[in-house]
Design a protein around this nucleic acid. Structure first.
Lengths: 345, 345
DNA sequence: CGTTGGCACTCGGTAGAATCGAGTGCTAAC
DNA sequence: GTTAGCACTCGATTCTACCGAGTGCCAACG
């Protein structure tokens, strides 16, 4: 790749590219040379801008929707913009205050908190927001409880060190009395306390066959939970923004595809994880491998709990978005969320 | 209201109305007199159909989008159709089998089950589906557990008789050891076992002040949960269908409004509850009080667990929908869901 | 009297033509 | 290297003409 010259733009060309991006993000219309020359303090004429623009187009940063129209940024153009002009995030005061207020008053259960965080982030950015919960695999068992709901039906509950609660409804061949269930529960609790939830040891035989069957069934159930689920929960907020932004997308159907995509937790969670594993925080348009995201940009930031990577917050919007504002908002929210969870959790 | 003549249509007019509804639902185009006379075995000419149609229009069952176009059903027309021509639901074999298969293999935790049920119903009906979970207020406490996550931070967990688990993270002024927490837990468990979750008695003083503070905090936390949440959980599946149907809606923005509406659990849950309290199973267009639902129809069916009303499943789509198929699907799913929950729960 | 064929009329949708104007590329002058 | 000037391009907009499905009405029919 000719990335050496790709990342090198002389100062004026960079300024022009920046102007094109900013104007286009604001107006949604192709921006012409006069607009750039006029509204910016470049001190050069539109003809000069035109010359530079042809170069920028040849280099792949901007493009024309059709011959002799204004220019719009390409994905590469947005990329350059993000890499060079978004160093410090710009959040409006009102938004910064909204975030502060939210994390001032927030507590509740973890799930609710994450859910509401996604709605907050959506409000602040005006885009659809995603929050990926902490990975429960690292969590340890802190408590095990077995409750008989009906004769022959037992609910197994495991409380984890990160505040999550896992449960499974078991139907048993045997009908056990309270004492037996209690015995199984305390046996499992003693055995599993402190263990990682994804590596629960098998319960040893106790002598009572029915109890052993129950204990074994509980382990199998929890094992199934671990195996089946991608486990990190996904919370999506502000899906309605996807439609409000539909003008920015190619077709109206693409918005429908996006919505559908967002309903598949597994896909989204692994997508986010992949990006972050590669150290990517902003993924723009064709940089995404998923077809449906070709018109979209994703802005991510991990949050840390007690210094450890815990989960991710992010935003999904059209490539034509205000990257500075969005990146700033995502950064602040991820940071505050981590702080809150570190304090409370 | 002139409801006496409104519900009385002579046989041929009723057949014509039915034809208009069915054709319009299928083709999405205003249907003319020739189409009705030709494709139906009415045995009358288009002129006769035209005469009847003017009457049907005067009575408010159908309308013209503009002078001298075909007719489309009004909300009243759909209402007549629903009340007279949907007695037995018509489900295609493939769909019936999909439902059967789903409920054959389904188990998992209650939340997952309801969530997946909403997705199933959406797939089967091709519309957005809603599932309102059982009201947790009626559930009784079956187990209480307190787990120390960190020093000074305790997670309170209550297991309910319907298989739900409520939890709350508490920050305490005191740092309690395991024995104290355990004492509080067993005290609360003994006190609350069998009590309704929304009417937990206050814990009596035990002698140990720290334990009492903890017990009292737990009760306050659970009380807050009951008070704050509308509690019945709402699961929405297939939101992407809303956009696929956007042609049926007036504007594209209306779809965005709908999505936003669906994100407000409280509103939707109480809407559903209101409708059902009035014995309404199908609400069409202007029958809805909420402005955003003017172009929508809602089809609902309650499901029963052990004979008791438990929750609701439903579908949200454009007024121009196949009511027979939708009503059939909603009925089958609600019935099967109730059956499954009665068996397992 | 209900039903039917005939007929003039309406009006949204489509296609084509004309026009407008923002913006470009190029060239020559500074 | 920069700028003014100019011919050219092409999407967007407007206007016109026209088509045709469908209606309302009327007179004739069984």
């Amino acid at each position: 790749m000719g990335s050496t010259e790709a990342t090198d733009l002389d100062e004026r060309k960079a300024a022009i590219l920046r102007a094109v991006v900013e104007e286009y993000v604001e107006t949604a219309e192709p921006v012409g040379s006069q607009r750039v020359a006029g509204s910016r303090k470049l001190g050069v004429s539109s003809a000069t801008v035109r010359n530079d623009m042809t170069v920028l187009e040849r280099e792949g940063y901007i493009t024309q929707p059709y011959t002799s129209a204004g220019r719009i940024p390409t994905d590469l153009g947005y990329r350059y913009f993000v890499d060079h002009f978004t160093s410090e995030g710009a959040l409006r005061i009102a938004q910064r205050r909204a975030v502060a207020e939210f994390f001032e008053s927030a507590h509740r259960a973890l799930e609710d908190l994450l859910h509401e965080t996604s709605q907050l982030l959506s409000r602040v950015t005006d885009h659809t927001a995603m929050v990926v919960g902490p990975q429960p695999e690292v969590a340890q068992v802190r408590g095990v409880q077995l409750v008989t709901l009906h004769p022959g039906v037992v609910l197994a509950v495991a409380v984890l060190s990160n505040g999550a609660v896992e449960k499974y409804t078991l139907e048993l061949p045997d009908v056990l009395d309270e004492a037996q269930v209690g015995a199984a529960a305390s046996a499992l609790e003693g055995l599993w306390n402190g263990c990682a939830f994804n590596e629960l040891p098998e319960p040893p035989p106790s002598g009572d066959e029915a109890i052993d069957r129950l204990a074994y069934a509980v382990r199998a159930a929890f094992g199934e939970l671990v195996a089946e689920r991608p486990m990190e929960m996904l919370y999506v907020g502000g899906t309605s923004r996807l439609i409000a932004e539909h003008e920015s997308f190619a077709t109206a159907e693409s918005a429908a595809h996006l919505l559908e995509l967002l309903e598949h937790q597994v896909v989204v969670v692994s997508l986010v994880r992949n990006l972050l594993d590669q150290g990517v925080n902003v993924s723009i348009g064709s940089e995404n491998e998923i077809e449906e995201l070709r018109d979209c940009a994703i802005v991510l930031a991990p949050y840390r709990v007690e210094g450890e990577f815990a989960g991710t917050v992010g935003v999904l919007g059209p490539t034509r978005m205000d990257y500075r504002r969005t990146i700033g908002a995502v950064a602040v929210v991820s940071q505050q969320l981590g702080r809150l969870l570190t304090r409370v959790d």
